[in-house]
Write a protein that binds this DNA or RNA. Structure first.
Lengths: 132, 132
DNA sequence: TGGCTTATCGCAAACAGCCGCAATAGTGGT
DNA sequence: ACCACTATTGCGGCTGTTTGCGATAAGCCA
């Protein structure tokens, strides 16, 4: 089932704006900010409001098509959900970001699930610290 | 060495505003938002600007006197650095927050240090997920 | 005590992101 | 092809937080 059908199946509609956000996400290899997407879309379609981009990212996330991650700045990064799940390390002093195999975070996730009944999403926020 | 001396030792100054932020942090038992502090101070000293509170929290953090933690909303929470270090769980659906013994996060921290040379601060961001 | 340096201040404007509103436009049914 | 329903849009305004600015005042020395 394609995106269009899945949207309609949950009572959503496929609009020009939505398709543009989707395309921007597809074209972007890695994490993109909402601003990035908005700017890129507005280059060709200046009438499209940034808030529309934000709302569409939210909507597509509810559908499980994209996810977002918080880094150490206050800017949210978005990417397709079908991409390889991974954690993030970000260095507080030099700002470098690196990805992390999700398996490394599994033991903690399991521990939180078993001992605290908490299903943690450890990829949701970057881990902050100091790299070498 | 008291706060005043430590401030001056690193070229900082003790101002009325800074002392008020300090006092507010001392009075607050747990995590407080900058807004909380600003509002409380401004009740008696309306001329003090919120940005001054933010800058002072930053300054005191640089001195190692306070730290901040990111929860899932975009609001930063502050607390004295001498308080018991702990992790945070926050539920994405009901919003409940609970604290976590820091020891639980140690194995992951050790792993990141040993395998990736990354000194992680796992208390810096709350762990997001779904509680029972 | 008075003067000098400069950290810090208050203010105003910018930032990413969010929300309510009335107008617009997908969509499913006829 | 048209209609009715309502999800979605653009807009304006608001949030919490950060920044650049010129003015103020803390701290040091004479």
């Amino acid at each position: 089932m394609g995106i269009d059908e899945r949207l309609r199946a949950s009572g959503m509609r496929m609009t020009v704006q939505r398709r543009l956000v989707l395309e921007a996400l597809q074209r972007a290899r890695h994490h993109v900010t909402a601003e990035d997407i908005a700017t890129r879309i507005r280059a060709r379609h200046p009438q499209i409001d940034p808030s529309t981009v934000y709302r569409n990212l939210e909507a597509l996330e509810a559908l499980g098509y994209v996810t977002h991650t918080h880094f150490d700045d206050r800017v949210t990064r978005w990417h397709r959900a079908d991409a390889q799940r991974h954690g993030h390390l970000v260095c507080r002093s030099c700002g470098a970001e690196q990805e992390l195999p999700i398996g490394l975070l599994e033991p903690l996730a399991r521990r939180l699930r078993d001992d605290h009944g908490f299903r943690a999403d450890l990829a949701h926020s970057a881990i902050v610290g100091i790299c070498k």
